[in-house]
């Protein structure tokens, strides 16, 4: 698994370090810590951003017991190296060749475009970013950046709104088409938070399945979790009620929406509604793809 963490220099970015470190401690994922500096800042790294990224890396490593992590030790005098129009800093040792990558990277340009480009170019499985709390989701002063990432990323996205461990993850799926990788991502998030899992399916797939098909798909999902000793609650919601249901649940719980290419939820949740959910949710949001 490769996780891309998008950082700026605001406090919500430092808040997410410990959460991502826990996910990394569980999964030993390859990690890219990314910041984006504006174009026209000359042929050098933004000193504030570079310093912040180094600090995030130190804070990340400090979350692990000494000698108990796959990312190498703390960096000291290593400098960012210019590579393909960006700057990179990675501690690499041949002795750690079979272990995991922790790459610091500073790209140049429009933040949303650069985050999406980095995720695409390095085949990230998950993008994680923090943002301001409450009924607003600013990132580096941009109101719509988390929305843009949630709407346009090709991979799954977690927008972390506050440092509060979710007790429940409510995942809205199109149970007929949900992808294996999305179920796997749900499993890792549920394991991370030790959260209760609620699966919300659709009652009516308008002729694609019929009642028997819906029941069969739900039974398959229940079987999947039962075989893995994961207790999952299942709720079926009418498509026309889903938007309201999600809005209500997102006031309290972490919400996951499966928005893969084949998802019928894509017909219910337009990209703008996904952005609205990110904006209006009081808790963290997981967009699955």
């Amino acid at each position: 698994m490769r996780i891309l963490i998008a950082f700026d220099t605001h406090s919500y970015s430092s808040r997410i370090v410990s959460e991502v470190a826990k996910l990394a401690a569980n999964t030993w994922a390859d990690i890219t810590m990314l910041a984006v500096q504006p174009a026209g800042s000359g042929n050098k790294t933004d000193a504030t951003l570079a310093k912040a990224l180094r600090q995030y890396r130190t804070d990340f490593i400090d979350q692990f017991d000494a000698g108990d992590q796959p990312y190498g030790g703390n960096i000291s005098n290593e400098e960012f190296v210019q590579k393909n129009g960006a700057w990179e800093l990675s501690k690499h040792s041949p002795a750690l060749a079979s272990r995991k990558e922790l790459l610091l990277k500073i790209r140049v340009g429009d933040p949303a475009k650069e985050i999406l480009a980095e995720a695409r170019e390095h085949e990230a499985d998950l993008i994680v970013l923090g943002c301001t709390k409450g009924l607003d989701s600013q990132w580096k002063g941009e109101v719509d950046l988390p929305q843009k990432i949630a709407k346009k990323a090709a991979c799954s996205v977690v927008v972390i709104k506050e440092k509060k461990v979710p007790t429940t993850l409510t995942c809205c799926l199109d149970q007929t088409h949900v992808s294996q990788s999305s179920l796997e991502m749900i499993n890792q998030i549920v394991t991370l938070y030790q959260a209760e899992l609620k699966i919300v399916g659709l009652t009516d797939n308008k002729g694609t399945d019929g009642k028997a098909g819906v029941e069969n798909s739900i039974a398959q999902i229940l079987k999947y979790y039962a075989e893995r000793q994961i207790s999952a609650w299942i709720k079926l919601v009418r498509p026309e009620d889903l938007e309201e249901y999600v809005a209500e649940v997102s006031r309290e719980n972490m919400v996951g929406l499966w928005m893969g290419k084949k998802s019928l939820l894509g017909k219910i949740f337009s990209p703008n509604l996904v952005g609205k959910l990110v904006n209006h949710s009081q808790s963290s949001v997981l967009i699955l793809r």
Partner: peptide, 20 residues
């Protein structure tokens, strides 16, 4: 163990580990 991969992973990721 040689390596530990959490799902989901890409084919390219597991191929790289197999190569190592």
């Amino acid at each position: 163990v040689f390596d530990f991969l959490a799902k989901p992973f890409k084919i390219s990721e597991i191929t790289a580990v197999i190569n190592k």
